[in-house]
Simulated assay, not measured.
Amino acid sequence: MSSKDEKNLAQVIDKIATMDEPQRSTMQRVHDIIVSVAPDLKPRIWYGMPAYALSASTPALVTLRNDERLNLALTEKVELRPAGGADGALMPAAWYFETVDEDTEKRIAEIVRAVVS
């Protein structure tokens, strides 16, 4: 890992560490899921949020927000496909969560894998 990647990772870890519980533990778990299933994504801060990109100099693909609710979102830089079915031309790009159970963990992993595949 390059020193810039290490610095960016440290900034993401520090950002998560500033969050109040239980959001901090939940966001740390989501961060761990992302770096585990997509080790090619590089953590960095993007508009003040923990985010993940293909390199330190490319736009973020995945972001994590801690507002009134926790949020996993894909940026406009991801190739999004219409959902079809009842959602027609809508493209799923953000998911809110409060906790991460086993099913949520699996779904987050699927979403992140789809970003990098």
Rank of each mutant, 00 (worst) to 15 (best):
D40S: 13
M19L: 12
P82V: 12
Q23P: 06
Y96G: 05
L9K: 06
V62L: 03
V12A: 01
D32N: 06
I16V: 05
L70A: 02
D20N: 13
S57Q: 15
L64N: 04
T63I: 09
F97G: 03
N71R: 07
W95G: 07
E6H: 08
K77Q: 12
A10W: 10
S117W: 09
W46C: 06
T63F: 05
A86M: 12
V112T: 00
I108R: 01
A89R: 10
L74K: 04
A93V: 02
V35I: 06
P39A: 05
E102G: 08
M49G: 02
V62A: 04
P92F: 07
D40E: 14
I33V: 01
V37R: 03
E21D: 15
G85C: 10
E79N: 15
W95A: 07
E76K: 14
V112K: 06
R24G: 09
T63Y: 04
S36V: 02
K4E: 15
V78K: 03
R24I: 08
D103S: 14
A51G: 06
I13Y: 08
I108M: 03
V115H: 08
K4Q: 11
N66H: 04
W46N: 07
D87F: 15
M19D: 04
Q11M: 13
A60N: 02
L54I: 09
H31T: 02
A53D: 02
K15T: 07
Q28E: 11
S2R: 12
D40F: 11
R69N: 05
M1F: 14
L61C: 10
Q11L: 14
M91Q: 11
A83D: 07
V116C: 04
R81C: 12
H31F: 10
D101G: 07
R44V: 06
T58P: 07
G85I: 12
V62T: 04
E21N: 14
Q28C: 05
F97A: 01
N66E: 04
E21I: 13
D14T: 09
E21Y: 14
A83Y: 08
T63L: 07
I34T: 00
W46V: 03
A51M: 01
I34G: 04
A93E: 08
K4R: 15
L41P: 01
A94L: 06
D20I: 11
P92G: 02
P59H: 07
V116H: 05
T18K: 08
H31P: 00
E6S: 14
V100S: 05
S57E: 12
Q23E: 08
V35C: 00
P92I: 06
E79M: 15
L64Q: 01
A86V: 11
V35G: 02
A53I: 01
R107E: 09
